[in-house]
Design a protein around this nucleic acid. Structure first.
Lengths: 117, 117
DNA sequence: CGGTATCCATGTTGATACTG
DNA sequence: CAGTATCAACATGGATACCG
């Protein structure tokens, strides 16, 4: 179990933290990619396969988004020495930590839809 | 106390709910405006005053964002019959429900910054 | 005061073609 | 297969001027 950390943050730091979170959760594709990977944990998820299954994404965007997810330690990239080469992507343990956050967004969003209808 | 509601949602509905949440939390200004209003509950928060205090926002954007917040029932707009007319904005009770959600974004963001540094 | 209208700079995304 | 390069389209936001 993790040690609970007492945090103090200024208003500006909080806004920066929110920006950081939204940079990952707020874009058009990152969450879709991560949700796909998370629902296909036991499979080999190659670049092509992800592109087929994440509806509408271009190679350019998929490449860019996967690179950013990797830099943020949310996703691993593994080059398989097949012929031709394939590359495998998977969520990291740490990456799974985004899903509880998205749950709160889902809950608020569903409730909000009820509220304003 | 509210009745807990058991929700079932498809993947697409969940993504739509997240989009709804992010439309409000994810933009550049809405959260700053709401945080400002929430920290100045006992004051008259006129258009001009908000524009002065929310750093860098233009009248165009402030007008647009406030209108969207009002439509989403997060903020009230009250025209005061002073001369000249002033308009007063305030968080609604319901609007306060965004702050627990932002807290989870702050927590994840702060933790993430530690993680990747 | 509380906005709206207009025009413009910028960044983000898509389409297509191409490479190792 | 797994990308990159290039160009075009579009959305977002800012600056300025103006109105009731």
């Amino acid at each position: 179990m993790e040690t609970p950390i007492k945090r103090e943050a200024t208003c500006e730091q909080e806004l920066a933290a929110i920006r950081d979170s939204l940079e990952i959760l707020g874009g058009k594709w990152k969450l879709r990619i991560m949700r796909y990977l998370n629902n296909h944990i036991d499979e080999k998820n190659t670049f092509k396969k992800i592109q087929r299954e994440v509806e509408g994404i271009s190679a350019k965007m998929l490449s860019k988004e996967l690179r950013e997810l990797e830099i943020n330690l949310l996703v691993t990239r593994t080059v398989m020495e097949t012929r031709p080469v394939t590359v495998n992507y998977a969520m990291t343990e740490y990456g799974l930590s985004v899903f509880p956050v998205t749950e709160t967004l889902v809950d608020w969003g569903l409730n909000h839809r009820e509220k304003i209808k």
